[in-house]
Write a protein that binds this DNA or RNA. Structure first.
Lengths: 157, 157
DNA sequence: TCTATTTTAAGAATATAATTCTGTTTAATT
DNA sequence: AATTAAACAGAATTATATTCTTAAAATAGA
């Protein structure tokens, strides 16, 4: 059974989503508690799925992936089996980091991270446009990024 | 001075961006090395900025933020000072997790995470549309998400 | 309100992993 | 070939995670 998050849980989550390498001691100190309850709460949050995983966030640009592109796509056919196939194909492309089925002016919104404009063009030509039933495709090339985070504001939950 | 990443560095990064709680021992074992060089390499990768931070990835839905929306925006004025002001305002909204300046059919692409449709509407009405010089605003409501990750494929770098 | 039950926390003890240190090997440079 | 710098192995140390036991607080039922 799922329990509800109290204020302490929320604070722990807020800290860990900002820096997951913090020691339980430092969290405990900040909350005026000892390590054991903090430790147990964290384990519970992991076990119950509030915390999905712990990851290192890399600097894409530094690693050589300098370009982020969003691609809006409409499909010509909308059968269930085809949609599933489409998503499956998309997931196999290593450039793609996000794939959302959306309502609005597109059927899908993709986010991809690539080396540069050439790599983007290669993706479009030799991968994306090979998929069947492709309708309208519209790209938004990122010029600069003002904010990009995973961190969600927990003051409102 | 920046050094280039060798294959060992790349493998370490790949492991840590998948699970940053792995022990240096387990990484060392997988790479057939001992803990000291792994430890030193990780510290170097942190220091030189290849690793930006370590974070806990939360389950947004479980926490009560069930809706992801992308918003494409065009502005009516494009003076530099206004663009900066716009980005600054946007960054203050806790709902926004991403804000990209883009080229294409929009000036900006926002990604936001909110409780539900009502919260989304509230954001639009009482926050977004209060900003001056706003032109076209187009929302893409996420119906389902096939893939959503930070993890980039390092086999190509 | 009292008692039983469950939950939560504290504090000490232990296990595990991170970090440091020293000496050796390997690779690069001249 | 000699010299220097970088990278690694292995042991030693330190810090942190994890476990355990007991006490306090909260909750539910009579």
């Amino acid at each position: 059974m799922a329990h509800t998050l109290d204020h302490i849980d929320t604070q722990i989550l807020a800290m860990l989503q900002n820096n997951s390498n913090r020691t339980t001691k430092s969290i405990a100190d900040e909350l005026g508690m000892t390590t054991s309850p903090i430790f147990e709460r964290i384990k519970k949050l992991e076990k119950e799925g509030y915390i999905k995983k712990y990851v290192a966030v890399l600097d894409n640009k530094k690693i050589g992936l300098k370009l982020t592109v969003f691609i809006g796509i409409t499909l010509q056919g909308h059968t269930r089996s085809y949609l599933e196939k489409f998503v499956k194909e998309i997931n196999n492309f290593p450039e793609i980091v996000e794939c959302h089925r959306v309502s609005g002016n597109f059927d899908y919104l993709l986010k991809l991270v690539v080396e540069d404009i050439e790599a983007y063009e290669t993706f479009i030509i030799s991968k994306l446009t090979l998929l069947p039933y492709l309708g309208n495709v519209q790209s938004l090339i990122t010029l600069s990024t003002g904010k990009e985070t995973n961190e969600i504001d927990l003051s409102r939950v």
